[in-house]
Amino acid sequence: MIIYHGSVEQVCNPEIREPNHRLDYGVGFYATTSYEQAKRWVQRKMREGKISKGYVNIYEFNEQVMEMLKTISFPTPSEEWVDFVMQNRTEPKFTHDYDIVYGPVANDHVYTAFALYEGHVLSKQALIAELKTYKLVDQYLFHTEQSLNSITFIEAKEIIL
């Protein structure tokens, strides 16, 4: 399977990096099956950093490895997914022991809905119902060095603003 990672640099050798803020699935290397999602992400980073070019890095993912590693998958928004995302975003000491996490990506619309949930404006059930009306793209988190062995760099496509 082909997966994509948007970055302001070519990432030939993915690695686990500590982010500067809490992310949906925790610490690790994030990728998606959506080229357009990866491109939008890098374009936003380019605008924020006033950088003129970035890259959509393309990888081959040996998804059979998911059967051998500890994984969790959230094919659609669910109560378990909401709880997992909220733990990763809001509990500073929270960590998990999954090698790979798969599920919906929290884009700008999803962030807004989550903010309403965090502010107790939406219930968990209302949040899930709201999210199911969106066309959500996916994301993979490679959380361990062992999981990174399942992806192989193919090429980096240059993106220019």
Score class of each variant (00 low, 15 high):
149 N>H: 14
79 E>F: 14
28 G>R: 08
139 Q>R: 02
131 L>D: 09
19 P>C: 04
17 R>V: 03
56 V>K: 06
65 V>L: 15
104 P>Q: 06
5 H>Y: 15
40 R>P: 01
36 E>Q: 13
155 E>G: 07
50 K>N: 15
119 G>Y: 14
38 A>D: 11
34 S>C: 12
68 M>K: 13
52 S>N: 15
111 Y>P: 00
73 S>M: 03
117 Y>V: 11
107 N>L: 10
129 A>L: 11
24 D>C: 02
120 H>C: 03
152 T>G: 06
123 S>E: 11
125 Q>M: 07
132 K>E: 10
31 A>H: 05
152 T>V: 12
143 H>V: 04
101 V>H: 10
51 I>S: 08
87 Q>C: 13
110 V>M: 03
120 H>W: 01
87 Q>H: 11
158 E>Q: 08
50 K>L: 08
81 W>Y: 07
41 W>M: 07
85 V>C: 03
8 V>R: 02
109 H>I: 00
149 N>Q: 09
83 D>F: 02
80 E>D: 07
145 E>N: 14
84 F>L: 09
67 E>D: 10
67 E>Y: 10
63 E>R: 05
24 D>T: 10
7 S>I: 07
120 H>M: 10
29 F>S: 13
29 F>G: 14
13 N>T: 13
98 Y>D: 09
131 L>A: 06
150 S>Y: 06
117 Y>C: 04
134 Y>K: 01
21 H>A: 14
46 M>V: 05
72 I>S: 03
160 I>P: 01
112 T>D: 06
57 N>A: 09
82 V>L: 06
12 C>F: 14
148 L>M: 11
104 P>N: 12
25 Y>V: 10
57 N>F: 03
126 A>I: 08
87 Q>M: 12
23 L>W: 06
103 G>N: 01
13 N>Q: 13
55 Y>F: 15
129 A>R: 07
59 Y>K: 09
13 N>G: 00
92 P>T: 15
154 I>P: 00
43 Q>H: 14
37 Q>A: 14
140 Y>F: 02
